[in-house]
Design a protein around this nucleic acid. Structure first.
Lengths: 123, 123
DNA sequence: TCAATTAGTTTACTTTTGGTAACCACTCAT
DNA sequence: ATGAGTGGTTACCAAAAGTAAACTAATTGA
């Protein structure tokens, strides 16, 4: 089965006792994946970077409901996971852009699917 | 463009003032979608229901790290969004199963993609 | 000179989340 | 009678997450 997780199921022994085979002892891969792109505003940030570098305040303007602190926090998380790179394009006046890495871009498929699903279901 | 959101971008006027076109005033569709399937354990729960009805305690056993309270809470959320149905299959002793609705099943595509991505990247 | 821009940081909160553990009423097997 | 099972509920607590608003220092345009 390679890296993939085995399916978990419940078994009942001769005494009627239940036992689960292949329990998720640690968060399973779905859970782990969610923790990479499922944070509040994380998906939106990645999606708004899809067409190329964007500057901090522009991003903040695009994401109407999110505070700067949030955006800053999320960008730092994304940077630490190598999903986004931060580039200073100018000192005085300071100018910074954020851009998706290849890994960051690889999440776009999921986000596009999510977006379509979400819109289709008028969620 | 139908139901889909327009792309947002930043415009600079003659005086150099920035203005964002198509701001996300409310959480955009990615954000909304995430709030349906991105809660802690939500994706895992949906995924573990993919092969048919599962009983509460069996689900609790499969999801090693999650408390009953969490699972209960998530199941109620999912029920309220018509992603899962709860069926009492027996009084005394009480027995209940949870099952995906069609809408719940429609989320599986996204979760499968997320799972694959997560495993591929050894996240 | 005043206002706005840059990219954040800091403060001072409030709100939400999550976890543990005990408990309920009931049944069943030993 | 005891312990384990059913499917939850409840109370309490700690920690995390999220908020708005003010502030930094420097620059630029009117």
């Amino acid at each position: 089965m390679g890296i993939a997780e085995k399916k978990s199921f419940v078994e009942t022994d001769a005494y009627g006792r239940k036992k689960v085979i292949n329990v998720c002892l640690e968060p399973c891969s779905i859970e782990k994946g969610m923790r990479l792109i499922g944070g509040k505003w994380t998906g939106s940030i990645i999606y708004h970077l899809k067409d190329g570098p964007v500057r901090f305040n522009d991003l903040a303007r695009m994401l109407g409901g999110a505070s700067k602190k949030m955006i800053d926090q999320r960008l730092k998380e994304l940077e630490s996971r190598d999903m986004v790179t931060r580039t200073v394009i100018n000192d005085r006046p300071i100018a910074v852009t954020y851009e998706l890495t290849d890994f960051g871009q690889s999440a776009l498929d999921i986000l596009e699917l999510l977006k379509g699903w979400s819109e289709k279901n008028k969620v």
